[in-house]
Write a protein that binds this DNA or RNA. Structure first.
Lengths: 196, 196
DNA sequence: GTGTGACGTAAGCAATTGTTGACTTGAGGC
DNA sequence: GCCTCAAGTCAACAATTGCTTACGTCACAC
Protein backbone atom coordinates (compact mmCIF):
# COMPACT_ATOMS: atom_id res chain seq x y z
CA UNK A 1 0.00 0.00 0.00
CA UNK A 2 2.97 2.28 0.68
CA UNK A 3 4.74 2.31 -2.66
CA UNK A 4 7.25 5.05 -1.85
CA UNK A 5 9.51 4.47 1.13
CA UNK A 6 8.03 7.43 3.05
CA UNK A 7 10.77 8.76 5.24
CA UNK A 8 9.59 11.89 6.93
CA UNK A 9 6.60 13.19 5.05
CA UNK A 10 3.79 14.37 7.28
CA UNK A 11 1.19 14.61 4.52
CA UNK A 12 1.96 11.14 3.25
CA UNK A 13 1.95 9.63 6.72
CA UNK A 14 -1.35 11.31 7.43
CA UNK A 15 -2.83 9.87 4.27
CA UNK A 16 -1.43 6.45 5.08
CA UNK A 17 -3.11 6.56 8.48
CA UNK A 18 -6.34 7.67 6.84
CA UNK A 19 -6.29 4.78 4.36
CA UNK A 20 -5.43 2.18 6.98
CA UNK A 21 -8.07 3.52 9.35
CA UNK A 22 -10.79 3.50 6.69
CA UNK A 23 -9.91 -0.08 5.92
CA UNK A 24 -10.10 -1.18 9.55
CA UNK A 25 -13.17 0.87 10.43
CA UNK A 26 -15.07 -0.40 7.39
CA UNK A 27 -14.10 -3.99 8.10
CA UNK A 28 -14.55 -4.20 11.87
CA UNK A 29 -16.45 -1.12 12.98
CA UNK A 30 -15.39 1.72 15.24
CA UNK A 31 -15.37 0.18 18.69
CA UNK A 32 -13.70 -3.06 17.65
CA UNK A 33 -10.69 -1.52 15.94
CA UNK A 34 -8.05 -0.11 18.27
CA UNK A 35 -5.78 2.79 17.53
CA UNK A 36 -2.85 0.41 17.88
CA UNK A 37 -4.31 -1.80 15.15
CA UNK A 38 -4.39 1.17 12.82
CA UNK A 39 -0.94 2.43 13.76
CA UNK A 40 0.61 -1.01 13.39
CA UNK A 41 -1.17 -1.51 10.09
CA UNK A 42 0.33 1.73 8.86
CA UNK A 43 3.74 0.91 10.33
CA UNK A 44 3.69 4.04 12.41
CA UNK A 45 3.67 4.97 16.07
CA UNK A 46 0.35 5.24 17.88
CA UNK A 47 0.95 8.76 19.08
CA UNK A 48 0.78 10.08 15.53
CA UNK A 49 -2.95 9.41 15.44
CA UNK A 50 -3.55 11.91 18.19
CA UNK A 51 -1.06 14.31 16.69
CA UNK A 52 -2.68 14.38 13.27
CA UNK A 53 -6.32 13.74 14.13
CA UNK A 54 -6.58 14.80 17.79
CA UNK A 55 -8.43 11.62 18.76
CA UNK A 56 -9.70 8.28 17.54
CA UNK A 57 -13.05 9.92 16.83
CA UNK A 58 -11.29 12.67 14.90
CA UNK A 59 -9.68 10.04 12.71
CA UNK A 60 -13.03 8.34 12.17
CA UNK A 61 -14.64 11.63 11.27
CA UNK A 62 -11.88 12.30 8.75
CA UNK A 63 -12.52 8.88 7.19
CA UNK A 64 -16.24 9.50 7.03
CA UNK A 65 -15.78 12.96 5.54
CA UNK A 66 -13.63 11.51 2.77
CA UNK A 67 -16.20 8.78 2.13
CA UNK A 68 -19.04 11.30 2.02
CA UNK A 69 -17.37 13.53 -0.56
CA UNK A 70 -16.51 10.42 -2.53
CA UNK A 71 -20.11 9.19 -2.53
CA UNK A 72 -21.49 12.58 -3.45
CA UNK A 73 -19.77 12.32 -6.81
CA UNK A 74 -21.81 9.21 -7.56
CA UNK A 75 -25.01 11.09 -6.88
CA UNK A 76 -24.02 13.83 -9.32
CA UNK A 77 -23.29 11.43 -12.16
CA UNK A 78 -26.24 9.06 -12.16
CA UNK A 79 -29.17 9.92 -14.41
CA UNK A 80 -31.01 7.08 -16.18
CA UNK A 81 -32.25 4.02 -14.26
CA UNK A 82 -29.64 1.91 -16.03
CA UNK A 83 -26.88 4.32 -15.01
CA UNK A 84 -28.10 4.35 -11.43
CA UNK A 85 -28.12 0.56 -11.23
CA UNK A 86 -24.68 0.31 -12.80
CA UNK A 87 -23.21 2.89 -10.44
CA UNK A 88 -24.69 1.11 -7.42
CA UNK A 89 -23.46 -2.28 -8.58
CA UNK A 90 -19.98 -0.85 -9.03
CA UNK A 91 -20.04 0.55 -5.51
CA UNK A 92 -21.06 -2.81 -4.11
CA UNK A 93 -18.95 -5.20 -6.15
CA UNK A 94 -16.39 -3.25 -8.15
CA UNK A 95 -13.61 -3.46 -5.59
CA UNK A 96 -11.13 -5.65 -7.40
CA UNK A 97 -8.48 -2.97 -7.68
CA UNK A 98 -9.51 -0.19 -5.31
CA UNK A 99 -11.00 -1.27 -1.98
CA UNK A 100 -12.03 2.29 -1.20
CA UNK A 101 -14.97 1.96 -3.56
CA UNK A 102 -17.01 -0.32 -1.35
CA UNK A 103 -15.36 0.64 1.94
CA UNK A 104 -17.07 4.00 1.55
CA UNK A 105 -20.43 2.24 1.69
CA UNK A 106 -19.46 0.16 4.70
CA UNK A 107 -18.37 3.27 6.58
CA UNK A 108 -21.92 4.56 6.23
CA UNK A 109 -23.22 1.77 8.43
CA UNK A 110 -20.45 1.97 11.04
CA UNK A 111 -21.22 4.35 13.86
CA UNK A 112 -18.79 5.80 16.37
CA UNK A 113 -21.58 6.89 18.67
CA UNK A 114 -20.68 10.52 18.13
CA UNK A 115 -23.66 12.67 17.30
CA UNK A 116 -21.76 14.81 14.81
CA UNK A 117 -20.73 11.93 12.57
CA UNK A 118 -24.19 10.41 12.89
CA UNK A 119 -25.62 13.66 11.61
CA UNK A 120 -23.17 13.69 8.69
CA UNK A 121 -24.36 10.26 7.71
CA UNK A 122 -28.02 11.13 8.09
CA UNK A 123 -27.60 14.30 6.07
CA UNK A 124 -25.83 12.52 3.22
CA UNK A 125 -28.43 9.75 3.06
CA UNK A 126 -31.24 12.26 3.12
CA UNK A 127 -29.67 14.30 0.34
CA UNK A 128 -28.95 11.29 -1.87
CA UNK A 129 -32.42 9.86 -1.40
CA UNK A 130 -34.00 13.17 -2.44
CA UNK A 131 -31.83 13.29 -5.52
CA UNK A 132 -32.67 9.69 -6.32
CA UNK A 133 -36.38 10.34 -5.93
CA UNK A 134 -36.23 12.99 -8.65
CA UNK A 135 -33.53 11.41 -10.82
CA UNK A 136 -35.95 9.82 -13.25
CA UNK A 137 -38.13 12.93 -13.34
CA UNK A 138 -35.89 16.01 -13.17
CA UNK A 139 -38.82 18.31 -13.76
CA UNK A 140 -40.13 17.59 -10.29
CA UNK A 141 -38.77 20.17 -7.88
CA UNK A 142 -39.98 18.90 -4.54
CA UNK A 143 -40.38 15.10 -4.26
CA UNK A 144 -43.16 13.96 -1.95
CA UNK A 145 -42.43 11.84 1.11
CA UNK A 146 -43.65 8.68 -0.57
CA UNK A 147 -41.12 9.01 -3.38
CA UNK A 148 -38.27 9.82 -0.96
CA UNK A 149 -39.24 6.86 1.17
CA UNK A 150 -39.03 4.51 -1.78
CA UNK A 151 -35.64 5.97 -2.72
CA UNK A 152 -34.48 5.37 0.85
CA UNK A 153 -35.54 1.75 0.67
CA UNK A 154 -33.48 1.53 -2.50
CA UNK A 155 -30.53 2.98 -0.60
CA UNK A 156 -31.18 0.51 2.19
CA UNK A 157 -31.00 -2.28 -0.37
CA UNK A 158 -27.60 -1.07 -1.52
CA UNK A 159 -26.26 -0.80 2.02
CA UNK A 160 -27.77 -4.08 3.14
CA UNK A 161 -26.48 -5.90 0.09
CA UNK A 162 -23.00 -4.51 0.75
CA UNK A 163 -23.08 -5.83 4.30
CA UNK A 164 -24.33 -9.24 3.23
CA UNK A 165 -21.65 -9.43 0.58
CA UNK A 166 -18.59 -7.91 2.22
CA UNK A 167 -19.20 -8.19 5.95
CA UNK A 168 -21.24 -11.34 6.54
CA UNK A 169 -20.08 -12.91 3.27
CA UNK A 170 -23.04 -15.10 2.42
CA UNK A 171 -22.72 -16.98 -0.89
CA UNK A 172 -23.60 -16.74 -3.72
CA UNK A 173 -23.84 -12.99 -3.16
CA UNK A 174 -20.31 -12.80 -1.79
CA UNK A 175 -18.84 -14.33 -4.94
CA UNK A 176 -21.17 -12.84 -7.54
CA UNK A 177 -19.82 -10.60 -10.27
CA UNK A 178 -20.65 -6.95 -10.77
CA UNK A 179 -22.85 -7.70 -13.80
CA UNK A 180 -25.14 -10.13 -12.01
CA UNK A 181 -25.67 -7.64 -9.20
CA UNK A 182 -26.27 -4.84 -11.71
CA UNK A 183 -28.85 -7.02 -13.37
CA UNK A 184 -30.92 -7.45 -10.23
CA UNK A 185 -30.41 -3.85 -9.16
CA UNK A 186 -31.76 -2.68 -12.49
CA UNK A 187 -35.11 -4.34 -11.79
CA UNK A 188 -35.00 -2.94 -8.31
CA UNK A 189 -34.47 0.63 -9.49
CA UNK A 190 -37.31 0.32 -11.97
CA UNK A 191 -39.60 -0.98 -9.24
CA UNK A 192 -38.81 1.71 -6.68
CA UNK A 193 -38.20 4.91 -8.62
CA UNK A 194 -41.03 6.68 -10.48
CA UNK A 195 -41.13 5.89 -14.19
CA UNK A 196 -39.72 8.65 -16.43
CA UNK B 1 -40.32 -4.56 31.68
CA UNK B 2 -40.27 -6.57 34.93
CA UNK B 3 -43.93 -6.73 35.90
CA UNK B 4 -43.58 -9.19 38.75
CA UNK B 5 -41.35 -8.20 41.65
CA UNK B 6 -38.88 -11.01 40.89
CA UNK B 7 -37.31 -12.01 44.12
CA UNK B 8 -35.15 -15.04 43.59
CA UNK B 9 -36.10 -16.70 40.35
CA UNK B 10 -33.14 -17.83 38.27
CA UNK B 11 -35.15 -18.50 35.12
CA UNK B 12 -36.81 -15.11 35.26
CA UNK B 13 -33.55 -13.30 35.96
CA UNK B 14 -31.93 -15.15 33.08
CA UNK B 15 -34.73 -14.09 30.76
CA UNK B 16 -34.52 -10.52 32.00
CA UNK B 17 -30.82 -10.46 31.22
CA UNK B 18 -31.52 -11.94 27.80
CA UNK B 19 -34.12 -9.29 26.97
CA UNK B 20 -31.97 -6.42 28.19
CA UNK B 21 -28.94 -7.74 26.35
CA UNK B 22 -30.82 -8.15 23.08
CA UNK B 23 -32.03 -4.59 23.40
CA UNK B 24 -28.54 -3.19 24.01
CA UNK B 25 -26.80 -5.38 21.44
CA UNK B 26 -29.34 -4.52 18.76
CA UNK B 27 -29.14 -0.83 19.53
CA UNK B 28 -25.40 -0.30 19.98
CA UNK B 29 -23.65 -3.41 18.71
CA UNK B 30 -21.54 -5.95 20.55
CA UNK B 31 -18.31 -4.11 21.28
CA UNK B 32 -19.97 -0.87 22.33
CA UNK B 33 -22.26 -2.34 24.95
CA UNK B 34 -20.58 -3.34 28.19
CA UNK B 35 -21.66 -6.12 30.49
CA UNK B 36 -22.20 -3.49 33.16
CA UNK B 37 -24.63 -1.64 30.89
CA UNK B 38 -26.66 -4.80 30.52
CA UNK B 39 -26.53 -5.71 34.20
CA UNK B 40 -27.51 -2.20 35.28
CA UNK B 41 -30.30 -2.14 32.72
CA UNK B 42 -31.63 -5.35 34.16
CA UNK B 43 -31.10 -4.13 37.72
CA UNK B 44 -28.89 -7.08 38.49
CA UNK B 45 -25.30 -7.72 39.48
CA UNK B 46 -22.69 -8.08 36.71
CA UNK B 47 -21.46 -11.46 37.90
CA UNK B 48 -24.78 -13.06 36.98
CA UNK B 49 -23.96 -12.66 33.30
CA UNK B 50 -20.96 -14.94 33.62
CA UNK B 51 -22.87 -17.29 35.88
CA UNK B 52 -25.77 -17.78 33.50
CA UNK B 53 -24.06 -17.31 30.14
CA UNK B 54 -20.40 -18.07 30.88
CA UNK B 55 -19.21 -14.96 29.04
CA UNK B 56 -20.30 -11.85 27.20
CA UNK B 57 -20.05 -13.77 23.97
CA UNK B 58 -22.16 -16.56 25.42
CA UNK B 59 -24.85 -14.01 26.21
CA UNK B 60 -24.65 -12.63 22.70
CA UNK B 61 -24.89 -16.09 21.23
CA UNK B 62 -27.95 -16.78 23.35
CA UNK B 63 -29.55 -13.58 22.05
CA UNK B 64 -28.73 -14.48 18.47
CA UNK B 65 -30.05 -18.01 18.88
CA UNK B 66 -33.34 -16.68 20.14
CA UNK B 67 -33.52 -14.22 17.26
CA UNK B 68 -32.74 -16.93 14.72
CA UNK B 69 -35.49 -19.27 15.94
CA UNK B 70 -37.81 -16.29 15.97
CA UNK B 71 -37.01 -15.34 12.39
CA UNK B 72 -37.31 -18.89 11.15
CA UNK B 73 -41.01 -18.82 11.97
CA UNK B 74 -41.43 -15.94 9.54
CA UNK B 75 -39.85 -17.97 6.78
CA UNK B 76 -42.25 -20.85 7.40
CA UNK B 77 -45.34 -18.68 7.19
CA UNK B 78 -44.76 -16.54 4.12
CA UNK B 79 -46.17 -17.81 0.82
CA UNK B 80 -47.59 -15.31 -1.65
CA UNK B 81 -45.67 -12.17 -2.68
CA UNK B 82 -48.19 -10.05 -0.79
CA UNK B 83 -47.70 -12.15 2.35
CA UNK B 84 -43.95 -11.92 2.06
CA UNK B 85 -44.01 -8.16 1.73
CA UNK B 86 -46.41 -7.80 4.65
CA UNK B 87 -44.32 -10.02 6.88
CA UNK B 88 -41.17 -8.10 6.03
CA UNK B 89 -42.83 -4.74 6.62
CA UNK B 90 -44.04 -5.95 9.99
CA UNK B 91 -40.51 -7.03 10.92
CA UNK B 92 -39.16 -3.62 9.97
CA UNK B 93 -41.82 -1.29 11.30
CA UNK B 94 -44.26 -3.22 13.46
CA UNK B 95 -42.51 -2.59 16.74
CA UNK B 96 -45.04 -0.41 18.48
CA UNK B 97 -45.74 -2.88 21.26
CA UNK B 98 -43.00 -5.49 21.06
CA UNK B 99 -39.48 -4.23 20.34
CA UNK B 100 -38.24 -7.78 19.87
CA UNK B 101 -39.81 -7.88 16.42
CA UNK B 102 -37.32 -5.55 14.77
CA UNK B 103 -34.49 -6.09 17.25
CA UNK B 104 -34.19 -9.59 15.83
CA UNK B 105 -33.34 -8.07 12.46
CA UNK B 106 -30.81 -5.66 13.92
CA UNK B 107 -29.06 -8.50 15.74
CA UNK B 108 -28.42 -10.08 12.34
CA UNK B 109 -26.16 -7.20 11.34
CA UNK B 110 -24.32 -6.94 14.68
CA UNK B 111 -21.25 -9.11 14.84
CA UNK B 112 -19.32 -10.17 17.93
CA UNK B 113 -16.33 -11.23 15.90
CA UNK B 114 -16.83 -14.83 16.98
CA UNK B 115 -16.72 -17.25 14.10
CA UNK B 116 -19.46 -19.46 15.54
CA UNK B 117 -22.08 -16.72 15.71
CA UNK B 118 -21.01 -15.44 12.31
CA UNK B 119 -21.66 -18.89 10.93
CA UNK B 120 -25.11 -19.01 12.57
CA UNK B 121 -25.99 -15.78 10.87
CA UNK B 122 -24.64 -16.88 7.52
CA UNK B 123 -26.46 -20.17 7.72
CA UNK B 124 -29.79 -18.53 8.57
CA UNK B 125 -29.49 -16.00 5.77
CA UNK B 126 -28.55 -18.67 3.30
CA UNK B 127 -31.48 -20.85 4.34
CA UNK B 128 -33.99 -18.00 4.21
CA UNK B 129 -32.79 -16.79 0.85
CA UNK B 130 -33.15 -20.27 -0.64
CA UNK B 131 -36.65 -20.52 0.72
CA UNK B 132 -37.47 -17.08 -0.62
CA UNK B 133 -36.13 -17.97 -4.04
CA UNK B 134 -38.61 -20.84 -4.32
CA UNK B 135 -41.48 -19.27 -2.39
CA UNK B 136 -43.33 -18.09 -5.47
CA UNK B 137 -42.65 -21.35 -7.32
CA UNK B 138 -42.82 -24.21 -4.82
CA UNK B 139 -42.50 -26.77 -7.59
CA UNK B 140 -38.86 -25.83 -8.07
CA UNK B 141 -36.70 -28.08 -5.92
CA UNK B 142 -33.26 -26.60 -6.37
CA UNK B 143 -33.15 -22.84 -7.05
CA UNK B 144 -30.31 -21.69 -9.28
CA UNK B 145 -27.70 -19.24 -8.02
CA UNK B 146 -29.22 -16.34 -9.90
CA UNK B 147 -32.56 -16.76 -8.11
CA UNK B 148 -30.89 -17.12 -4.71
CA UNK B 149 -28.79 -14.05 -5.40
CA UNK B 150 -31.88 -11.99 -6.13
CA UNK B 151 -33.52 -13.27 -2.95
CA UNK B 152 -30.42 -12.27 -1.01
CA UNK B 153 -30.58 -8.78 -2.42
CA UNK B 154 -34.18 -8.69 -1.21
CA UNK B 155 -32.96 -9.74 2.23
CA UNK B 156 -30.30 -7.08 2.05
CA UNK B 157 -33.01 -4.54 1.34
CA UNK B 158 -34.90 -5.60 4.46
CA UNK B 159 -31.79 -5.46 6.64
CA UNK B 160 -30.56 -2.20 5.16
CA UNK B 161 -33.96 -0.57 5.49
CA UNK B 162 -34.11 -1.64 9.13
CA UNK B 163 -30.74 -0.02 9.80
CA UNK B 164 -31.70 3.18 8.02
CA UNK B 165 -34.97 3.32 9.93
CA UNK B 166 -34.03 2.18 13.43
CA UNK B 167 -30.30 2.76 13.73
CA UNK B 168 -29.45 5.79 11.63
CA UNK B 169 -33.00 7.13 11.79
CA UNK B 170 -33.23 9.04 8.54
CA UNK B 171 -36.64 10.61 7.87
CA UNK B 172 -39.13 10.05 6.35
CA UNK B 173 -38.27 6.36 6.60
CA UNK B 174 -37.82 6.55 10.36
CA UNK B 175 -41.33 7.88 10.86
CA UNK B 176 -43.17 6.00 8.11
CA UNK B 177 -45.96 3.61 8.95
CA UNK B 178 -46.00 -0.11 8.37
CA UNK B 179 -48.40 0.19 5.43
CA UNK B 180 -46.27 2.61 3.43
CA UNK B 181 -43.26 0.35 3.83
CA UNK B 182 -45.32 -2.70 2.91
CA UNK B 183 -46.44 -0.86 -0.19
CA UNK B 184 -42.91 -0.29 -1.45
CA UNK B 185 -41.76 -3.74 -0.38
CA UNK B 186 -44.55 -5.30 -2.38
CA UNK B 187 -43.16 -3.83 -5.59
CA UNK B 188 -39.70 -4.91 -4.52
CA UNK B 189 -40.74 -8.51 -3.95
CA UNK B 190 -42.44 -8.64 -7.33
CA UNK B 191 -39.32 -7.26 -8.99
CA UNK B 192 -36.85 -9.63 -7.37
CA UNK B 193 -38.65 -12.94 -6.96
CA UNK B 194 -39.62 -15.08 -9.98
CA UNK B 195 -43.22 -14.64 -11.05
CA UNK B 196 -45.54 -17.49 -9.98
C1' DG C 1 -36.04 -23.56 64.45
C1' DT C 2 -32.28 -24.94 61.60
C1' DG C 3 -29.37 -26.44 58.24
C1' DT C 4 -28.58 -26.45 53.20
C1' DG C 5 -28.09 -25.17 48.75
C1' DA C 6 -29.23 -22.07 45.19
C1' DC C 7 -29.60 -16.97 44.23
C1' DG C 8 -27.44 -12.80 44.45
C1' DT C 9 -23.81 -9.22 45.80
C1' DA C 10 -19.38 -6.79 46.61
C1' DA C 11 -14.76 -6.05 45.70
C1' DG C 12 -11.03 -6.55 43.11
C1' DC C 13 -7.80 -8.51 39.51
C1' DA C 14 -5.42 -8.59 35.07
C1' DA C 15 -5.62 -6.99 30.60
C1' DT C 16 -6.62 -3.59 27.27
C1' DT C 17 -8.00 0.87 25.99
C1' DG C 18 -7.20 6.00 24.36
C1' DT C 19 -4.28 9.56 25.40
C1' DT C 20 -0.27 12.35 26.80
C1' DG C 21 4.28 14.22 27.80
C1' DA C 22 9.19 13.96 27.38
C1' DC C 23 12.52 12.34 24.45
C1' DT C 24 15.15 11.15 19.93
C1' DT C 25 16.08 11.59 15.11
C1' DG C 26 16.62 13.47 10.78
C1' DA C 27 16.45 17.00 6.87
C1' DG C 28 17.36 21.62 5.41
C1' DG C 29 18.97 26.73 6.13
C1' DC C 30 22.79 29.54 7.57
C1' DG D 1 29.55 21.96 10.61
C1' DC D 2 25.92 23.07 13.41
C1' DC D 3 21.44 24.68 14.72
C1' DT D 4 16.60 24.37 14.52
C1' DC D 5 12.34 22.65 14.27
C1' DA D 6 9.20 19.39 12.49
C1' DA D 7 8.58 14.25 12.29
C1' DG D 8 8.54 10.32 14.78
C1' DT D 9 9.29 7.26 19.01
C1' DC D 10 9.00 5.71 23.77
C1' DA D 11 7.09 4.81 28.07
C1' DA D 12 3.67 5.45 31.07
C1' DC D 13 -0.76 7.25 32.77
C1' DA D 14 -5.77 6.83 34.11
C1' DA D 15 -9.84 4.77 32.89
C1' DT D 16 -12.49 1.01 31.41
C1' DT D 17 -13.07 -3.61 30.20
C1' DG D 18 -14.53 -8.77 31.08
C1' DC D 19 -14.19 -11.91 34.49
C1' DT D 20 -13.45 -14.32 39.11
C1' DT D 21 -13.31 -15.24 43.88
C1' DA D 22 -15.05 -14.91 48.40
C1' DC D 23 -18.81 -13.55 50.83
C1' DG D 24 -24.09 -12.44 52.18
C1' DT D 25 -29.00 -13.98 52.15
C1' DC D 26 -33.29 -15.78 51.13
C1' DA D 27 -36.55 -19.92 50.43
C1' DC D 28 -37.60 -24.46 51.39
C1' DA D 29 -37.26 -29.36 53.45
C1' DC D 30 -37.11 -31.59 57.72
Amino acid sequence: MAATPRRRDAAQTRQLLLDTARHHFARHGFATTTVRDIADGAGVNVALINRYFASKEGLFEACLTSAVTDLKQDADRSSSPADIAATMAHRIAGSADDPRVHEALLLLVRSSGDERTDEMRRSLLHSISRRLATATNPSVREPDDAAVLRAQILLGAVLGTTMLRASIAVPPLSTAGEEQIADALSDLVKALLPAP
